[in-house]
Simulated assay, not measured.
Amino acid sequence: MSRQALRVTVRRWHLWLGITLGGLFALVGLTGSALVFYPELERAFSEPLHAVPAGTRPRSWQAVLDTLHREHPERTGAWRIEVTAEGGAIPIRYYDPPETRGPGRFAPLLLWIDPVQLTTIRAGFWGRTVVTWLYDLHYRLLLDAPGGTALGILGIAMLGLIGSGLWAWWPRPGSWRRALRFKRDAAAVRRLYDLHKVVGLASVGLLLLVTATGVMLDLPDQTRAVIGRVSPLYRASAVVTVPRGAMLSLDALARIAQARMPDGALAWIETPAGPRGTVRVNLSRPGEPSRRFPRTNVWLDPYDGRIVAYRDGLAETGGDTVLDWLHPLHGGEAAGMAGRVLIFLSGLAPTMLFVTGWLRWRRRGRQRRSMHLV
């Protein structure tokens, strides 16, 4: 096949991939842009959360746990208490509540506690708040685990859409200047092409990054299987404790964990799932890609404070390092606020590409029909 014939074929692939997948790509991009600021949106949509001043902290984390036990005595499983950098209302999760339990479902109970009054100021199940509904739409198309798998497979096709567009545009030697021009005085079909081209070229790097990391996040088992062939991956060993007396306070256990990793800031505290379980403390250390979901973990015996296992997020294998960076790169957190803004803007690009590509296709179709009628 000649170079010109190959270019024509790739352009056709790009056209039909864009027509069939462009709308879905736009939907995923727009929802992804919104979710870049997921915690901020959660507060903005809730007056009780917005009313709690930033910087407010509870007098103790044990007092927070006591509130949970008092208000929800029937929930005897593990609680995950988030320790946010900015303070304010305390986000808490209770995984696998009986109300939403089901195969392939992710629908924890979400609570927010006032750190001063130590009362629940907001409660709801995952997928039943505006922001978590958007998250499910973006991540699993509201179809639980099968939706995530389907979106991961479609994401591979989206990578083909991006790559075919870049291939179809790639100029011949000596024609780069003409290929990069935006012809303001050209016909509408040409201006649409130029706008499509400019948006695509400006966003192609980020779109490839976000789409590729999205595919890997949507297909976690397949991703781990592939990476595990090249590099060993961390596997937490099952640790059980022997009940003996009262448990130590969460504050004492958090201090022990921080003494093990003195440069780590508290990110999450997870309580035992039962009387033989452990307390897990997640610590965010300088150099980890995610402040919110760090990989430095310390597991403690809640009865005597003994450290039974730990994971150093800065001493990962190559494979685990790849996995650790997926979510922070996908959402832009790895590059701070500037990275989040760039990812937000990149999420708008698929809509612009779909609209300009579809309009150009329609206009060219009308032109061809008009020529046949003459």
Rank of each mutant, 00 (worst) to 15 (best):
D324P: 01
P272C: 04
R292Q: 04
W169G: 05
F354I: 03
A78P: 05
L207W: 05
R75S: 06
L283M: 10
G165T: 10
A335I: 03
P103R: 13
I92Y: 08
R11P: 02
T84G: 00
V298M: 09
T119G: 02
E270A: 05
L111A: 08
I343T: 02
W79F: 11
R59G: 06
E86G: 01
Q258A: 14
V374F: 03
R295H: 11
A335H: 04
P302N: 02
W299A: 12
G160N: 06
L329F: 07
T31V: 05
L35Q: 05
P302R: 00
R292A: 09
M337C: 01
P53Q: 06
L248P: 01
A78L: 06
P103V: 11
D218G: 14
L161P: 09
I256G: 03
A85E: 14
A157D: 03
R101S: 12
L49T: 07
L68N: 09
L314W: 04
T20P: 03
G205V: 12
L17C: 09
W325A: 14
R364S: 07
L141A: 15
R235M: 07
L134M: 15
T9W: 14
G365Q: 12
S33I: 10
S164Y: 09
P115H: 00
L359K: 11
L49K: 10
L137T: 05
L195R: 12
G205N: 04
R291I: 02
W268C: 01
H69E: 15
P262K: 11
D304T: 09
P39A: 12
D185L: 11
G287K: 08
P103M: 08
L250N: 07
L161T: 02
P53K: 00
I269P: 02
P108M: 07
A157Y: 06
D251G: 05
W167G: 04
D320T: 08
S231Y: 13
D320H: 08
E316L: 15
Y193A: 13
T296H: 08
L17E: 09
L219E: 06
V242T: 15
R280D: 04
R368H: 13
V242N: 11
G23A: 15
E74N: 08
P302Q: 01
G148Q: 03
A54H: 10
K183Q: 13
H330W: 07
L207F: 07
A309L: 01
A273N: 11
R70A: 15
V210C: 08
R7L: 11
V374R: 13
R59W: 02
D194S: 12
G332T: 01
R59E: 13
G32Q: 05
R295S: 07
W169K: 12
R360Y: 06
P98W: 09
L342W: 10
R244L: 08
L233N: 06
R244P: 01
L154A: 15
T56N: 00
G205P: 09
V239S: 00
R311Q: 12
G274F: 03
G163A: 14
W358L: 15
G318L: 12
L201H: 00
L345I: 14
V215K: 02
